[in-house]
């Protein structure tokens, strides 16, 4: 956990960033899977301490955007700047230093089943830092405390509930005291109470640690609760970037559709299911070729 008036005055951050500058800046991002274009000219700016929620239907490109934001995928065109560093051009040493400042809790980022909770959470520390084992253990236990998993050190992932697993993943994502935190569908598959507790945790972390966060979710309630601003993706394009009130006010039918998503979602799932059964790839622009879990 970090503590300072502004995260951006840390010596490890590139000098180019001043407190008024965005910590994430995306310009003209284009992304493809093979010949299929999934992101079109995406521009995005996130300010220090801001929680930016990314919403959109299944297959709209949310996860792809997130993968580009953290440098897991290289854009076909455009630039992605984190903490003043253009990660599409950064050298590996620069990327390594940057990665220490980034926490990622993705859907695929499950805990290692062969390690207990404490070892899972300490993993990034072992990769990035040279610390005494005792220091690392205390750091990990502090994070468990923060995510309300105190005492779960010795449990194996298989012994945790869905909500506990997410919390443990959050603990691991924040073990290095990141400046930037990225979540992909943190509350997917959780019941409403557990999911709401996760929202509280996200807000608590921002409050105490001054983190900037990008949270992908398609839980409307959650988005409205945690977001400073919401980016709505539709078939790989940005439809709207606005605060909660602005999104609610929007009379764009596609956004209204998203807000009254239930009926639409059922339809989307049916199509995705059909495609899964037939093994057919959709014809672009595709909004509906994913399994519900992976959306």
């Amino acid at each position: 956990m970090t503590a300072q008036a502004s995260q951006l005055t840390s010596a490890q951050e590139p000098a180019a960033v001043s407190p008024a500058a965005p910590v994430i800046r995306v310009e003209g991002l284009q992304a493809f899977y093979g010949a299929q274009q999934v992101l079109f000219d995406v521009d995005l700016t996130v300010m220090p301490g801001e929680i930016m929620v990314v919403m959109g239907g299944s297959g709209s490109g949310k996860s792809t955007l997130l993968r580009h934001l953290v440098g897991l995928s290289r854009p076909a065109a455009g630039r992605v700047e984190l903490l003043g560093l253009d990660i599409t051009r950064a050298r590996s040493m620069e990327m390594l230093a940057l990665r220490r400042k980034i926490g990622v809790a993705f859907q695929g980022g499950a805990l290692f089943s062969s390690m207990n909770v404490l070892d899972n959470i300490m993993l990034p520390l072992r990769e990035h830092a040279r610390l005494d084992r005792k220091t690392m253990e205390i750091m990990a236990r502090l994070k468990l405390e923060v995510v309300n998993l105190a005492g779960a050190d010795a449990l194996m992932p298989s012994e945790l509930s869905g909500g506990m697993l997410k919390r443990a993943a959050v603990a691991r994502a924040i073990i290095m005291d990141p400046t930037l935190l990225f979540f992909d569908e943190p509350s997917a598959g959780l019941d409403p109470t557990v999911s709401s507790a996760l929202d509280d945790l996200i807000l608590k972390l921002r409050e105490a640690m001054n983190m900037t966060m990008v949270v992908v979710t398609h839980e409307l309630e959650s988005a409205f609760k945690i977001a400073d601003r919401i980016t709505i993706l539709d078939q790989g394009r940005i439809l709207l970037v606005d605060d909660v009130a602005g999104v609610r006010r929007s009379d764009n039918p596609r956004i209204q559709n998203l807000l009254n998503r239930r009926s639409e979602e059922t339809e989307v799932d049916a199509q995705a299911y059909l495609q899964r059964l037939t093994g057919e790839t959709p014809t672009p622009p595709a909004a509906t070729n994913e399994t519900p879990e992976a959306s």
């Binding site: 840390s10 005792k134 220091t135 750091m139 005291d177």
Partner: peptide, 10 residues
């Protein structure tokens, strides 16, 4: 001006 959790752990 800043102490991270490794400092706090110490």
């Amino acid at each position: 001006t800043y102490i991270d959790s490794s400092g706090i752990a110490s």
